[in-house]
């Protein structure tokens, strides 16, 4: 297991190299002189040129990339062209908001979507199933920004139940609307995924075995069918969490949350290369680590997959052990 984890972590290195190189290339296709941004308009051409040279702007692209890489490996992601704050410092101050928003809405989607999906599967073709299926398709089709604005209009402006924005001041009430906005679409997809996965496992032969044993319907559904569905649901959760980071960008804009999403969008618009690269490395690493966790969870959930964590050198040993047992 430990060997497997180390192997996976080492494999992250080439992935990160490719990702960073690609984005570095893309963002430099339209060249921006960093010195012009940093110094503003009230300076002479000569000053601009000097600073550009100092920042390595006149070096060829590969050289610039490797210089960036050299610093990045040492944990130095540079300073923002605009605010001159350290990039990592900036990310760390914003990331908690994005993470909190994502986790809250992920939790909400799971808590509502999965039980409803199980209900739909066990009562397939019932009225409740039909209503929920149509509803989930409708909800899944609503664009997040529109939904956010609608909720703001109704529950904040008209009814005044929740504040519009203001998450920075604390107060959990301010989190309610953004969480719901971000969660609704995912709840719908959790419902549909859970329904189809459960429909699949409910029809398996071992469900019939469980019934023949005298299990209650609840035990048949949750202990036998649902347990076999968790593998797929974990996969979906891994990718959903990463997609949530994307969805968070929109929600952060609508509800003025100072999260990572807003930061990236602004940084890209302003061509703030250090910030873009820093945030990108951070998000890519986060994504890769989530994927690793998902893969490790597989082994916990499904014993059949444990074999793939064994590193090849271990295999003959296992066979020898099995042979002894028989004897």
């Amino acid at each position: 297991m430990l060997k497997y984890v180390i192997k996976r972590i080492l494999l992250m290195i080439p992935t990160m190299l490719i990702v960073t190189a690609l984005v570095f290339l893309l963002i430099n296709i339209t060249p921006v002189e960093p010195a012009r941004i940093i110094l503003g308009t009230d300076v002479s051409e000569e000053q601009v040129e000097n600073l550009n040279r100092e920042l390595g702007f006149y070096d060829p692209l590969p050289v610039r990339y490797f210089n960036w890489l050299k610093n990045a490996v040492q944990g130095n992601f540079g300073n923002s062209y605009y605010t001159n704050r350290g990039v990592m410092e900036e990310i760390m101050s914003r990331f908690p908001y994005t993470l909190k928003l994502s986790l809250l809405s992920l939790g909400l989607s799971i808590l509502i979507g999965i039980p409803l999906g199980v209900f739909c599967a066990t009562k397939q073709y019932s009225i409740g199933d039909h209503i929920l299926s149509v509803l989930s398709m409708g909800l899944g089709a609503i664009p997040i920004f529109w939904l956010g604005l609608l909720l703001l209009l109704e529950f904040s402006s008209k009814l005044g139940w929740f504040p519009a924005g203001g998450v920075t001041k604390g107060g959990w009430l301010a989190w309610v609307l953004p969480t719901i906005t971000l969660a609704l679409g995912n709840t719908a997809s959790y419902l549909r995924y859970t329904r189809s996965v459960m429909l699949d496992s409910i029809r398996q032969d071992y469900i019939r075995t469980a019934r023949a044993k005298g299990c209650s319907e609840a035990a048949v559904t949750w202990k036998h069918a649902f347990r076999n569905s968790t593998l797929t649901l974990i996969t979906i959760t891994g990718t959903t969490l990463s997609a949530l980071m994307g969805g968070a960008i929109v929600v952060e804009q609508v509800f003025t949350i100072p999260g990572l999403g807003v930061m990236i969008v602004t940084a890209i618009q302003r061509k703030d290369i250090p910030e873009v690269m820093g945030a990108l490395v951070f998000l890519a690493l986060f994504f890769l680590i989530m994927m690793l966790i998902v893969d490790l969870l597989y082994a916990v959930v499904d014993p059949r997959l444990k074999g793939r964590f064994a590193v090849s050198a271990k295999k003959p040993k296992k066979h020898a052990a099995a042979g002894k047992k028989v004897a």
């Binding site: 071992y206 075995t209 005298g214 299990c215 319907e217 347990r227 076999n228 499904d302 014993p303």
Partner: peptide, 27 residues
Amino acid sequence: NHELRKIRGKQISMVFQDPMTSLNPVY
């Protein structure tokens, strides 16, 4: 249902056709 549950597995039990799929793979 609750009467059936007491009979199934205790008084009447069944051996199924396909052993490959009749056991729950995760237990």
